[in-house]
């Protein structure tokens, strides 16, 4: 077989145009006299072309419920019927991380590069008791969520009525001022349990408002 068809093993490379020029010329000389190899070249090309036309198929059953069960363990029902999974422990953790950054770095940390929140994180529970709450496996850290939501809101703001955009921006500014004041207060008293919980709550309100705004964009 190989003696009669010395190029048989290289025909796919030839079909794909991947042979160096000298080998290609030698192979083409062989093809002039070998009908078998010519036929094989045609077939290989057809296999390749057919492969490129295969259509995607839907799965035979809906796979989403199984996925939802695996990612939505921490989901809870929040206002306006949407399901969110970035929960208070994660926000508290994000706030706690800002506090760890310390007085001078707190403001910087909010727009930082994104601190992943995963695994158990020590946070201060609203009761004031230091508690270890395992952070849920979320899609992204607080910073990342705020950054990406901010990006889509900037890019797609023209989908919303200007009056709505104005209200949303004013409200976000109000929340940002509240966050800044909480951070300033924390800077003077980093161990205050109320302040860290309040910062986390205000951050949650910001994220919640941004989600609502993005949901409006998605529906518009």
């Amino acid at each position: 077989m190989t003696n009669r068809h010395p190029w048989m093993a290289r025909l796919s490379e030839y079909v794909d145009g991947e042979l160096p020029a000298d080998e290609r010329l030698a192979l083409e000389r062989h093809l002039e006299t070998c009908a078998d190899c010519r036929a094989t070249v045609t077939q290989l090309g057809r296999v390749r072309d057919l492969a490129g036309t295969l259509a995607d198929r839907e799965p035979p059953r809906d796979l989403w419920p199984g996925i939802e069960a695996r990612i939505g363990g921490a989901a809870r029902v929040l206002p306006f019927g949407r399901r969110w999974t970035l929960t208070m422990p994660q926000l508290a953790a994000a706030a706690a991380l800002m506090i760890v950054v310390g007085a001078g770095g707190a403001a910087l940390a909010l727009r930082g590069t994104g601190t992943p929140v995963a695994g158990p994180v020590a946070v201060v529970a609203p009761s004031g008791d230091p508690t270890v709450i395992p952070a849920t496996a979320g899609a992204a850290s607080y910073d990342q969520a705020v950054t990406s939501l901010g990006r889509v809101l900037t890019e797609h703001r023209d989908r919303l009525d200007p009056a709505t955009v104005r209200v949303l921006e004013q409200s976000l500014q109000t929340i940002d001022r509240a966050i800044a004041r909480a951070q300033e207060a924390l800077a003077t008293d980093p161990n205050d349990a109320y302040l860290s919980a309040h910062l986390a709550e205000t951050m949650r309100q910001k994220l919640n408002l941004m989600r609502r705004a993005a949901a409006l964009v998605a529906a518009s």
Partner: peptide
């Protein structure tokens, strides 16, 4: 039952 109210402004 479950009552949820969300405003902004």
């Amino acid at each position: 039952g479950r009552i949820s109210v969300s405003g902004v402004e």
